[in-house]
Design a protein around this nucleic acid. Structure first.
Lengths: 232, 232
DNA sequence: GAATAGCTTCGTCTCTCGCCGAAATGTGAC
DNA sequence: GTCACATTTCGGCGAGAGACGAAGCTATTC
């Protein structure tokens, strides 16, 4: 027998600046070893270890042991969702240095958002998905099922997009702090990002959520945009 | 120029048990005076005052002065969204007393969830909305736009449901801790609850999020269910 | 089998948070 | 004007959180 959820438990775990930086780093979607997270959070290894213990106890992160490293990742997409929801109501950090400004610019142009693309590149992919009929126009927070019949086309073929079963929405409009328009999260978002990553369209920065469009990726993307727009 | 959002600020504000109980009470959607919130949170008036100061400073609640009372409410639907997202990943509070058990049962049967209905009654309304074609079947977290053409019918007429413009999704599947199915949030959810409240189908408890179906409401609802199912 | 690297545990310090009761403030009622 | 009530401010207490460095554990490396 259980009553209402006690939001203070996850909120307290997220409510420390260093832990906030840790989970924000993990929002990039990949597994990160403890030492890197310590550096990202700007605290000593022992302090980070304590923070990670807290996050584990609250069930917000999971850990994989690989050799002498411990790789941490967000425990679920629900956790990522809660962090995104908090970002919507959180104040922005102030930019103090040129270095910070540079990082911010990189993130603005393209970055990962848990398991999909965000930033300008995310918006560009969203346009492409809409004009090729893979997803319908989405407002922020709205989501939709896969269209039937499912459209075939160069985009669908190149990135091997396919409708799937499961709890997770097919497409979801996800706003984050970069812009006022929605980029595409949900199953499609995850599928296109993982395909673009696997096929070398994009390269991920080792130490941040930033993503760079490769020369090959830029060329293929432009071609795709041209083909799709000619059809319309 | 600003960088990434600092989630530690809202998370810290929500990360205290007493403040968690306060915002959960406010998730009921109505404005509540400081003294009542102190009672709901189980702390003294002076302690509650301090907590409310923190929540105000973090921008999570807003306040209206009415005479010698100060009525608090959640600052926005984004705040409500963040609280719901945290509820999804939060552990359940344990039930210790018979009194708590009773309250829990009441909430389970029908309650408000910010500005719409949840609990068993919420699920019942969700079924009705789906079978009358006002919203499509929704998974949790999914949302949809108003159907076109917009269906007419006894339900639509009785509760004066109408499609509207605006950022907010028309319908959104909202899971909370009661069940595994989704109830209907979004504009439709808000519209049907406010109509049912205004027309006396439901009565709201003064001191909690619980809602009671009135005799009149029960009768009209049964009739509506019968009519809708005959059509199908 | 040392030596090294990654991480955690331990000991300790400091500082802030959350709590209350008492007093102060402000508003409405008579 | 005075009384009653709602709320905030103040003072003080106790507990716990977060920080670090040093030491310990374990797995890879040579």
């Amino acid at each position: 027998m259980s009553g209402e959820p006690d939001i203070a438990v996850p909120a307290r775990a997220l409510g420390d600046p260093a832990r906030g930086r840790i989970v924000t780093a993990l929002l990039g979607g990949r597994s990160i070893p403890a030492g890197d997270l310590a550096r990202a959070a700007g605290v000593s290894a022992s302090t980070a270890s304590e923070h990670l213990r807290v996050l584990l106890a609250a069930g917000l992160v999971a850990v994989d042991h690989r050799g002498r490293h411990r790789f941490f990742r967000l425990a679920s997409s629900e956790v990522a969702g809660a962090i995104e929801a908090l970002q919507e109501i959180a104040p922005r950090t102030e930019i103090r240095s040129l270095r910070q400004h540079h990082v911010s610019e990189e993130l603005r142009s393209a970055r990962t958002c848990y398991d999909h693309l965000a930033g300008d590149l995310g918006l560009r992919m969203a346009d492409l998905l809409v004009s090729s009929g893979v997803v319908s126009e989405l407002k922020i927070g709205e989501s939709s099922s896969a269209p039937e019949p499912f459209p075939a086309g160069q985009l669908v073929h190149a990135l091997r997009i396919r409708p799937t079963q499961g709890r997770r929405p097919w497409a979801r409009g996800c706003l984050d702090w970069t812009g006022r328009r929605a980029h595409v999260a949900g199953q499609v978002g995850a599928q296109i990002f993982s395909a673009m990553d696997a096929q070398g369209w994009v390269a991920r920065r080792a130490d941040s959520r930033a993503v760079r469009l490769t020369g090959r990726g830029a060329a293929l993307l432009s071609e795709l945009e041209q083909v799709t727009n000619e059809l319309v």
